[in-house]
């Protein structure tokens, strides 16, 4: 539940909302908690929010691990169950 998943900001919209790419899946998230995030930033996503800006290498490492340790109930999006 406290797991945060790396993603890349691919589109900025109004109201500090943004589209992010989570390994091929596009999600809309809020950037309210990361005022410094901009187009192209790598961020950690938790419960529909970017909670930290991270560097690209860190994002790649985290993803490798997440693939290995997160299992997901059929009806639950990974980020919510994690």
């Amino acid at each position: 539940m406290c797991l945060a998943i790396p993603a890349r900001v691919i589109l900025m919209s109004d109201n500090r909302m943004a589209e992010v790419d989570i390994h091929g899946v596009t999600r809309t998230v809020s950037l309210d908690l990361t005022p410094e995030a901009e187009l192209g930033s790598w961020v950690l996503i938790h419960a529909g929010f970017a909670i930290q800006v991270v560097d690209e290498q860190f994002a790649a490492e985290s993803w490798d691990l997440i693939k290995q340790i997160v299992w997901v109930d059929d009806d639950v999006p990974a980020e919510a169950s994690a």
Partner: peptide, 13 residues
Amino acid sequence: GVGFETTVPTIAV
């Protein structure tokens, strides 16, 4: 709302 400090700011917003 269940969660620790990781989740709480998202609820505040």
